[in-house]
Amino acid sequence: MARTKSCLSANFRESDFLTLASLLGVVSFDALTNALQKCGLATKRYRKLPLELMAYYVICLSLYSSVSLQEVLRCLLEGMQWLKLKLPCGAIEGRGGISRARKRLGSKLMEVLFQDVCRPLASPESRFAFYKKWRLMAIDGTTFALPDEKANSDYFGLPPCSRGTTAFPQLRLTVMIEVGTYAITAATHGPFREGENTQAKRLIPHLDSSMLLIADRGFGCYPFFAEAMTSEAALLFRIRNNMKFECEKMLSDGSFLSTFYSGLEHRKKINGSQVRVIEYTLKGAKEKYRLITNILVPEEAPAIELAQLYHERWEIEIGYDELKNHLKLPGTNLRSKTPELVIQELYGFFLAHYTVRTLMYKAVLKKHIDPDSLSFIGTVRILRRKITSARFPPQ
């Protein structure tokens, strides 16, 4: 049965416009202008729906995921008029006009805008986002269901199933988040058949020596670990229990030094990477955890502290929940019907999520409270009804 998107009220409240202004204020108009220039899309003449407007529109699609395309555009246009912005914009278009404008925008601009805007948020004073000298980062993958269109199925593929075929094509996504603030700072995507480790290698350039990357055992393989070491970041990966690591030197904190080899090179003992292995079990549980790290000196990071730190990796699941069940309605697909617009919409979700998380981080700094005490969906609801002052980027 076809679903009908809900409409917004015909009479907007002032707080609706001010909320919109605050949410989009994180993505500055200067950043958008720079992204347009990088992509060779700098505006030479303004259409009814200029590219600047459409970039903000794509972000708004995720903020109002239960509202029809035309209603989201009406909200944006009337908000701009109420705020007396100078960005040229015309009348509300139908679905066809909106689709053509989104195709002109493309996906590359949204990707560049995401890369320019979405950086780690926490300052060194925000100790909840750091372990000693390292900024805590986590990496993991997930999937997004897409509309059942032939173009999406051909490009992204369908997940396998035991009988028949699956209902919807799926996109595979791997992201890196800042653990303390839940901000998504790097992301990559591809067809469903593409593995998380393959995608994760594309995120390695976003690491540096100031970071400590935490990853689950799905990433605990030699090729990815060895390549991640070239970034000079500290690494803390869980590994499978059937992987063999010989104890070369026992350390004072109960961990031991070993060498991580790739495949057949383990027999020849060549081209390995020295690691520190930490093994432990949780109280009352039988499952054994095994971690490896390239922090080889126990005094820099004791084994018990790294064991406690590893479980911070699950914070990334909260970020995925916010994307898939709060910004996007639970159980629904992305809206776009072609691969180019799917990718465009995906980066719109990233920018919207980063916007909300930025505002939450500022609230944490102002009120001196634990960031875990704030609710993501609660923050969105508060912004929609109680904001009393704001600035919108196009000045």
Results as ranks from 00 to 15, higher is better:
E315N: 14
L327I: 00
L309F: 08
S336R: 13
G319K: 06
L346T: 06
L306R: 09
E317H: 07
Y310H: 10
K324S: 02
K337H: 11
R335E: 14
R313P: 00
H326W: 05
V342D: 08
E312M: 08
P339T: 09
H311D: 05
A307Y: 00
L346I: 02
R313C: 09
I318H: 02
L329Q: 14
Y310C: 08
H326F: 14
N325G: 03
G319S: 15
K328R: 14
K324P: 02
E322C: 07
E322K: 14
A307W: 08
P339K: 04
Q308P: 09
L329F: 07
T338G: 03
N333Q: 06
W314S: 10
R313D: 01
Q308S: 03
Y320T: 11
L346Q: 02
N325R: 15
L334Q: 04
I343R: 04
G331F: 07
L346K: 00
E312Q: 02
T338P: 09
L329K: 06
T332F: 05
V342Y: 06
T332D: 10
K324E: 12
P330V: 13
Y310Q: 05
S336L: 11
E312T: 05
P330Q: 08
K337C: 13
I343T: 04
E317L: 04
H326C: 12
N333K: 04
H326Q: 15
W314G: 07
P339H: 04
I343K: 07
E315Q: 13
E345C: 09
T332M: 08
T332N: 02
L327P: 00
Y310I: 06
I343W: 06
T338A: 07
K337G: 12
T332Q: 12
Q344A: 01
L309I: 08
Q344P: 04
E340W: 03
Y347E: 15
W314D: 04
R313H: 05
P330H: 09
K328A: 10
L309G: 01
Y320S: 01
I316V: 13
A307K: 02
Y310L: 10
K324N: 10
G331Q: 03
Q344C: 02
E345F: 11
V342R: 09
V342I: 13
L309Y: 03
Q344H: 01
P339I: 10
T338R: 11
L306W: 03
R335Y: 14
E322Q: 12
E340M: 06
E340S: 09
D321P: 11
K337W: 02
L334S: 00
P339G: 00
E340I: 06
E322H: 11
L323T: 04
S336K: 07
E312A: 03
I343N: 00
Q308A: 11
E315V: 06
L334I: 13
D321N: 15
H311L: 06
K337Y: 01
L329I: 10
S336A: 15
T332G: 00
G319V: 11
L306S: 04
I318E: 13
D321M: 12
Y347P: 10
Y310E: 09
E345W: 13
G331R: 01
G319D: 08
G331K: 04
T338N: 13
V342G: 11
K324W: 09
I318L: 15
R335D: 15
W314V: 02
D321G: 15
K337E: 15
K324Q: 13
N333G: 01
S336Q: 13
I343H: 07
L329G: 07
N325W: 04
